[in-house]
Amino acid sequence: MSLRSPLGRVLGKGSAKEGTGSWWAERVTSVALIPLTLWFFFSLLLLPSLDYGTVKTWLAVPWSSFLAVLSIAVLTYHSYLGTTVVIEDYVHATGLKVLSLLTLRFLYVLCGGAGIFAILHVAFGS
């Protein structure tokens, strides 16, 4: 027996079957971020100094730049998913909601893109 109304069936409305997509992605990225962020955090903490030369030399090592790019990419996606839910929860006016979600998305691509580009710039030299 279907619980869908005849009208609903005719209009083809119902579950889009992708409602759990962002929820699941938030969890998958959080699992990936446990080792990635710990690596990033403790690498910086254990550097002998944070002066220009030391940090640049460290980040230019292929392992460092590779893991740093992964970290920024996953962090950006995870943070985007999280703050999107915050806006969806608290901003109710449709126009403002769409505008803030769109702005948020652009800002994350900009921020993540700039971070990754900067790492690659350091890794491959100017």
């Binding site: 220009y52 940090v55 640049k56 980040l59 740093a68 920024i72 962090l75 950006t76 943070s79 999280g82 703050t83 915050v86 921020c111 993540g112 700039a114 971070g115 580009f117 900067a118 790492i119 710039h121 350091v122 100017s126």
Partner: peptide, 24 residues
Amino acid sequence: HRMTGVALAFGLLALSYWLVSLAG
């Protein structure tokens, strides 16, 4: 948890700025 998440979103912005400055 939610408040620290939002704070960390701004932290990510600072982290990107710091990386861009390193490339600069």
